[in-house]
Design a protein around this nucleic acid. Structure first.
Lengths: 211, 211
DNA sequence: TAGATTGTTAATCGATTAACAATC
DNA sequence: TAGATTGTTAATCGATTAACAATC
């Protein structure tokens, strides 16, 4: 359980993938798996998996492999899933609603506490049991609630102005879906999800493969 | 315009980011930009930008930098944006609807030709001017239409069974949003978008920074 | 021209893979 | 025990950064 050196971001990005596959194996009642078998499933090498995991500790058993459920638990712990994360969402359009409805959040400790929108038609609607609030109430809400993650699912134009409000409101991190790179204060973490960029990458690969 | 050696995927993934920033610069009527200035905006190095671009050709002017609009055009061409891509979408829930409504697709040559769903309540509804069809009509549709990209926005459980239908229907690529890794035939390209995985990464970073 | 900035080669850095002793 | 598989060090590979001559 050594955590001295900074872990490479490439390793961190693979942990959720391991977590997803282990969850599936657990559901199938598979109790044990070797790095080799896991590598096959993930289209990677056994070496990489062992190398990744051993950055955080020794979770395997020589000669046998890894205990699926305990490895899953360890990775969950590394990712901080055992601590509940309180979230809010701004922008309750289709994408926002899709995220609020995502079934696995609660199970993994991600708890959406409130949803905001500007549109008076949308305000008052219910998503997944949550009544959508007017965005005017956002500042006040943040003063009275400790929020870990703010999700932005507004259009690009309006995304930027929320950053200051979130920093002010002591939000720890922004999960941003607006197609814009938010200029980040070092008081807040920003994770940008630019969905459409992966479509452009795919476009390139189609042209390369089929022409 | 040499295209002999295979281009690294890491380079390809940066092209859409360059494209987005150049689009923004163009809108601001900025005509010229140097690799140094671009690097600042992107939080990277001038060297990397020049290195990336020169994999595809020499687009700059020594002493001056790059012409914003022509560089944007070149990158668009590299990504295959000048050729129209016909798409269909399966699973017209909130996420599916969000994608169909995404404003920049058409402008960039991505054309959604049809939308399918299983739910009889959803079938017949309209999204962005498209009437949602019953998924039973999917096979037939693919026989009569040449589709480049199939977008999957169904739950994980039902995602897998569509792969065969798409391969059969000569679809070139799948853009998959279901939280599952589709086992790919080599006849079809698959781009998996696992939105929630970036939330787990963010969770890790929050714990590291604030504890 | 002088200054700026490219294109490109070389150097460095980091990440992946291979190898193998340890051991369950 | 023998076979399997880990944890970990060493080797390789690839990607990023630095440097600089070419030149607009």
């Amino acid at each position: 359980m050594k955590e001295e050196k900074p872990i490479a971001i490439s390793v961190i990005k693979r942990l959720p993938i391991y977590y997803r596959v282990l969850t599936k194996l657990e559901q199938k009642n598979i109790e044990t798996i070797s790095s080799g078998k896991l590598a096959e499933k993930l289209n990677t090498t056994a070496s990489q998996i062992r190398q990744d995991l051993n950055q955080f500790g020794s979770f395997g058993h020589k000669g046998f492999g890894y205990q699926v459920s305990s490895l899953k638990k360890e990775i969950g712990r590394i990712l901080g899933l055992e601590k509940q994360k309180d979230m809010i969402l701004v922008g309750a359009g289709n994408l926002g609603k899709a995220i609020v409805n995502y079934p696995n959040f609660k199970r993994r400790g991600f708890n959406i506490k409130a949803v905001f929108d500007v549109d008076p038609i949308i305000v008052g609607q219910e998503v997944n049991g949550i009544i959508i609030k007017d965005v005017k109430l956002l500042k006040d809400f943040l003063e009275n609630n400790e929020i870990d993650i703010a999700i932005i699912t507004t259009p690009a134009e309006s995304a930027e102005k929320f950053v200051d409000i979130f920093v002010e409101g002591r939000v720890k991190a922004i999960w941003n879906f607006a197609p814009i790179s938010l200029n980040c204060s070092d008081r807040i973490l920003v994770e940008n999800v630019h969905i459409s960029e992966s479509l452009l990458t795919l476009s390139y690969m189609i042209d390369k493969k089929f022409n």
